[in-house]
């Protein structure tokens, strides 16, 4: 009876606590490993914010696009990439370098069969299946929470990391919340909202430059605000912008950029008795953002 009970308990907690022990073979298994839906019961507001965020749909692009589709295309086909293969069955996790940031748990916790299944889903335009792959609470509050691994060790199993410590966290799996050294620091976001070219891959590519811009153009000019100061005010886990919300995105951009316009109308004298009616418009855009616009 005791053995049966232990097996039952093990089966119940496996989706979250067993992420270190085995790799997911399917999209469903990977989604289940990092499923954070249980967080909703206590953190309903934060969860609702996250659900609308790009972190909740990291493979979906803007307005429902399937942004990884070019990688899934058959090698040589119009629109395919250097990462594409001539057969979807040949696709591996390493064929999706975008996982580095768009699905970091796939790099550490997924078998190549997940890459094959994703490729087939992308080719079939199966948005519902692709949408299962998310950057969940567990990805940020465990997987990406430590960058000083030589000094502090890697993220511990069954532990969440946050801006503050919670000694007793009422959850069956994550019973402790430890303070992360970096969660309030821009470098935390900089892990993915990047520095420039990703030169560590066998085929270099470039996605976001945002953290590089922050370091070299904002901090260097005396800026002191963090990413979190502006994009996570009051702990907002939408982490705007949400490009699917046009009104909100326009308002955010308007708060970051100001436009000043001056005009002048006069008659220009090029030579004696020859006047040219002329209009001159001068514009000035100023930014209070901590990074270049646009970037990501």
């Amino acid at each position: 009876m005791r053995i049966i009970l232990l097996l039952l308990i093990a089966a119940f907690v496996m989706p979250l606590s067993n992420v270190e022990a085995q790799k997911a073979k399917t999209i469903d298994e990977l989604a289940k490993m990092f499923d954070a839906s249980q967080c909703k019961s206590c953190h309903a507001e934060i969860y609702a914010q996250w659900e609308k965020s790009h972190h909740a749909r990291p493979l979906m692009g803007v307005k429902g696009g399937l942004m990884l589709t070019p990688l899934a295309l058959k090698k040589g086909e119009k629109g395919s990439t250097a990462f594409s293969e001539d057969d979807p069955k040949k696709m591996k996790i390493s064929n999706f370098p975008c996982f580095k940031c768009h699905l970091p748990q796939a790099v550490t916790h997924a078998e190549d069969s997940v890459a094959v299944e994703l490729t087939e889903a992308l080719l079939a335009k199966d948005s519902e299946k692709v949408a299962k792959l998310q950057i969940t609470c567990i990805v940020c509050h465990n997987e990406k929470a430590i960058i000083h691994k030589r000094e502090l060790g890697g993220p511990e199993k069954g532990v969440l990391y946050s801006a503050k410590e919670v000694t007793s966290h009422p959850d069956a799996t994550f019973k402790t919340v430890k303070k992360s050294a970096i969660m309030n620091n821009s470098v935390y976001c900089g892990q993915c909202h990047g520095l420039g070219p990703n030169l560590e891959f066998d085929q270099a590519f470039q996605c976001a430059n945002l953290y590089g811009s922050y370091l070299h153009n904002y901090v260097s000019g005396g800026g002191t605000q963090s990413c979190q100061d502006c994009h996570m005010k009051k702990g907002d886990h939408l982490i705007a912008p949400n490009f699917n919300d046009e009104k909100q995105t326009s308002e955010l951009l308007a708060s970051a950029l100001s436009l000043h316009v001056e005009t002048l109308g006069y008659e220009w004298l090029r030579k004696a008795n020859t006047y040219t009616p002329k209009v001159v418009v001068t514009t000035k855009i100023t930014s209070n953002a901590g990074h270049r616009i646009p970037d990501g």
């Binding site: 420039g196 904002y218 040219t276």
Partner: peptide, 29 residues
């Protein structure tokens, strides 16, 4: 366009922190 094809910036006209973008447009009526 697209991270899977880009490798490095060769030009950057974006709006940078601490730097105003000023333009002059001039035309004859």
């Amino acid at each position: 366009y697209g991270a899977q094809w880009k490798v490095a910036n060769i030009r950057d006209t974006s709006i940078q922190p601490h730097q105003a973008k000023k333009e002059t447009f001039e035309f004859d009526l």
